[in-house]
Design a protein around this nucleic acid. Structure first.
Length: 153
DNA sequence: GCCAACGTTGGC
DNA sequence: GCCAACGTTGGC
């Protein structure tokens, strides 16, 4: 079992939204970054743990836990010409972009903010979230880092 | 293949 | 709103 951190902007889709979804599950569409896609395609498995991270907001941080609920499959929004994430260069017979389903597990008892994670940088060496300039929306989390982060809750 | 220009991300 | 960091695009 692997662990991940997945970012979302709470103004568009936050952990509260995931909880309200049918089956509390949502296709994680709109990923248009090859490295993030490759994580989904090559390494994610149903049952993997997810730290649900709120980005681009007043208090960025981890707000809840989720799990991967499917293997990777083609992101339908890439073929919808009216959709914001439409990709004219992607063909249905050879989809460029994939997604996975993500299922809600629970809110954290309290958010673990980015600022707090930075304070524990010495325990989280190699965790890309706290590296300067990181922009990836899907990050692997080492089991040891997962354990240390969970211990902060 | 290089690299400047551009667009996006995301913290602050 | 600002801006640093980064990925992508496209001219050459």
């Amino acid at each position: 079992m692997a662990y991940w951190l997945m970012k979302s902007e709470p103004d568009s889709f936050g952990i509260d939204d995931l909880k309200k979804r049918p089956k509390q599950t949502e296709p994680w569409d709109g990923v248009r970054n090859y490295q993030a896609r490759n994580f989904m395609r090559d390494r994610m498995k149903p049952g993997d743990g997810v730290l649900f991270y709120h980005s681009n907001c007043a208090a960025p941080g981890i707000y809840g836990l989720a799990e991967i609920a499917s293997n990777a499959y083609p992101d339908p929004t890439q073929f919808d010409s009216k959709h914001h994430h439409y990709d004219a260069g992607s063909k249905p017979e050879e989809p460029r972009w994939l997604l996975v389903d993500v299922r809600y597990q629970r809110h954290l008892k309290r958010p673990i903010l980015l600022s707090e994670l930075r304070e524990h940088a010495d325990e989280l060496v190699g965790f890309k979230l706290i590296a300067k300039g990181n922009r990836l929306s899907i990050l692997p989390v080492a089991p040891e880092h997962w354990r240390r982060i969970m211990a902060l809750e």
